[in-house]
């Protein structure tokens, strides 16, 4: 036996799940796809009194378009996102990011809600949520509230969600036709978490840039939206010089930490290099 003993609950409804969280008062962990939580349990780094397994609540898995947003039930598997025609058409950046999430057997179980609520700053989905100004819906004892990406991530593995709240939906604005996108990532091995990744979206308008969106993974304790770098492109267009300037600015906007995988300086360097690559490729994608 690897994990410590815990009470196991697999409620059939969200209300039941919320009642269980209340009952354990912060000592329960929510089990979504389990691809990050189960290793923590096996190592006994996580020792919850109870697991509340959301896998028996089928109403939490869906992908639908609504009011210009693509909405995902929190338990929608990454694999379903990878093969969804709606995502391919309306959120191509998310589709590309999904291919970087672990490996196919991980994506079979891993969920969009779990990946975002786990808030690993090196993960791809939080970066996409941040780049696209997405939001999540949290349900708690007092009902539902919408939390913007910029208000969600607090620090490493920590969100602003309360212990008695469950992330139930992820909302991302659909991408207009004509936009270009790219996710550039550097990791030691494909399928590992990113040392640094950059998610980029550009909407060219002739020689101008109508909108640019840039966010990081792996370059600090939370995903960083690179607004000042975006503004250079929105002001100067998508020229080589503007892209170089935006990449240089991007490196100034992050405050990465050093760890066993890479130094802070190296991460800052990667931020510039990957921002440049992501923007160039996004522009090529936009021009078909």
């Amino acid at each position: 036996m690897k994990p410590v003993k815990f009470d196991y609950h697999a409620p059939a409804s969200l209300d039941e799940a919320l009642a269980l969280l209340r009952r354990y008062g912060g000592d329960a962990k929510i089990l979504a796809g389990g691809q990050s939580l189960m290793p923590l349990l096996n190592f006994r780094l996580s020792r919850p009194a109870a697991l509340v397994d959301l896998n028996r609540i089928p109403s939490l898995a869906y992908i639908e378009e609504h009011d210009g947003q693509v909405r995902f039930g929190a338990m929608t598997r990454q694999r379903m996102i990878e093969f969804s025609p709606l995502v391919a058409r309306r959120l191509p950046l998310l589709r590309e990011a999904t291919k970087w999430v672990g490996h196919l057997p991980i994506r079979t179980r891993g969920t969009i809600g779990g990946s975002i609520a786990h808030a690993d700053p090196s993960a791809e989905y939080p970066a996409v949520l941040t780049a696209l100004d997405g939001e999540v819906v949290a349900r708690g004892p007092k009902g539902e509230r919408v939390v913007k990406a910029k208000d969600l991530f607090v620090t490493y593995l920590t969100t602003s969600l309360e212990p008695d709240e469950i992330l139930v939906e992820v909302r991302l604005p659909a991408t207009d036709a004509g936009a270009g996108f790219a996710l550039e990532e550097f990791a030691r091995r494909h399928g590992d978490f990113a040392i640094v990744a950059i998610a980029a979206l550009v909407v060219p308008d002739g020689a101008r840039c109508r909108a640019a969106r840039l966010a990081t993974a792996g370059a600090g304790p939370v995903p960083v939206r690179l607004r000042a770098a975006e503004q250079i492109l929105e002001r100067d267009g998508l020229t080589d010089a503007a892209i170089d300037a935006a990449a240089g600015r991007a490196a100034e906007l992050v405050s990465p930490d050093s760890d066993i995988h890479a130094s802070a300086d190296y991460r800052r360097h990667l931020t510039a290099v990957l921002t440049r690559r992501a923007l160039r490729r996004a522009l090529r994608v936009a021009h078909g």
């Binding site: 196991y8 691809q35 189960m38 290793p39 096996n42 179980r109």
Partner: peptide
Amino acid sequence: GEAARSCIML
């Protein structure tokens, strides 16, 4: 029908 890892599933 889908590949998954049986060491990180209960």
